[in-house]
């Protein structure tokens, strides 16, 4: 009996985690999906109305705008952060004096909250007292930069603030990758007389594939979750021009009291992530990682 009990200890130790997994992860998702098929408004209803709330969702202007925005934000944010982060990492890899000072400067925004980032840029880009006014004061009175007040441009600024916050992360990941490259490879290339930029292009970038994938996964996860940056920087405005899906769900859950619509939106987000990130995650983490024992 004693023997059997001790054999179960690992399972018992994992019990809290099992409970969390079953209730907080799997259970909530199933429940959410279930609600999305009901006619619930303020309180959950037990009925079943099929895809009604999904039909309503995609005919809701605010949701369509949200999806468009997250796509624009995602592309600009990911490409921007990857490119800037890569150049920062490469430049820091050139045996720079005060490397750690530069690294500290590039990464500090990542330590702060998206709320802080959003508020800081909201102030700087403020059309009446920020950058634009400063240029006017310098005598450049024709300078206009009022994108934050323009419905068709504000989302680009949100992406820009995101890049400011997250490039350091890409830089840190890629720099670690660059430092992991076999030094002999650089020596061989030097003896072959290959110009540095060509070494990066033909040899280093292909070698950093895994690091780029890691950065991509982290950035992509941030895109789907983007909420606090928008809330702090624009509040979704002007109008609904910078709304994003994550904010749509929260607003409809807690302010607008339409939980069927909100959960159908969150289900769409869930499926999108499952199909896009699922395979990458599987390759990155699960596949082929049984420890050699």
């Amino acid at each position: 009996m004693k023997l059997r009990l001790s054999a179960l200890t690992p399972q018992i130790a994992l019990l809290p985690t099992w409970l969390i997994v079953v209730f907080a992860y799997v259970g909530t998702v199933i429940w959410s999906i279930r609600i999305s098929f009901s006619s619930s408004r303020m309180l959950p209803e037990g009925d079943f109305v099929g895809l009604k709330s999904y039909e309503r969702l995609f005919s809701t202007q605010r949701w369509v705008v949200s999806v468009e925005n997250v796509a624009i934000f995602g592309v600009i944010f990911i490409v921007g952060a990857l490119v800037l982060g890569f150049f920062l990492a490469v430049m820091l890899d050139q045996r720079i004096k005060a490397e750690s000072l530069f690294r500290t400067i590039f990464l500090y925004p990542y330590a702060m909250s998206f709320v802080v980032t959003g508020l800081a840029w909201q102030w700087i880009l403020n059309p009446s007292l920020g950058l634009q006014q400063m240029m006017h004061n310098f005598g450049w009175t024709s300078f206009t930069f009022d994108w934050l007040a323009r419905g068709d441009r504000a989302i680009y600024l949100v992406a820009f603030a995101g890049i400011w916050q997250a490039s350091g992360l890409v830089m840190a990941i890629l720099l670690a990758g660059l430092r992991g490259i076999d030094e002999d490879l650089w020596k061989a290339a030097k003896i072959d007389g290959i110009p540095t930029w060509r070494v990066y292009l033909h040899i280093v970038i292909p070698l950093l594939g895994g690091m780029f994938a890691t950065a991509l996964v982290l950035l992509a996860a941030a895109v789907v979750k983007v909420y606090d940056l928008v809330v702090a920087m624009t509040g979704g405005g002007p109008g609904i021009s910078t709304e994003v899906p994550a904010k749509f769900v929260i607003d409809y859950l807690f302010d607008r009291q339409n939980i069927a619509l909100a959960t159908s939106a969150s289900t769409v987000m869930f499926l999108a992530v499952l199909f896009v990130l699922g395979p990458i995650l599987y390759r990155q983490y699960i596949h082929n990682n049984g420890r050699a024992a």
């Binding site: 076999d182 002999d184 490879l185 020596k187 061989a188 030097k190 003896i191 072959d192 033909h202």
Partner: peptide, 28 residues
């Protein structure tokens, strides 16, 4: 190094990983 009239072979081989053997020989 490229102008010294030398060639070098390394312990870790240091082959360019994304190129074929032929590519490795001809790249320089």
């Amino acid at each position: 190094p490229k102008d010294r009239g030398i060639a070098m072979v390394f312990q870790s081989y240091a082959l360019y990983p994304q190129m074929t053997a032929r590519g490795n020989l001809s790249f320089g």
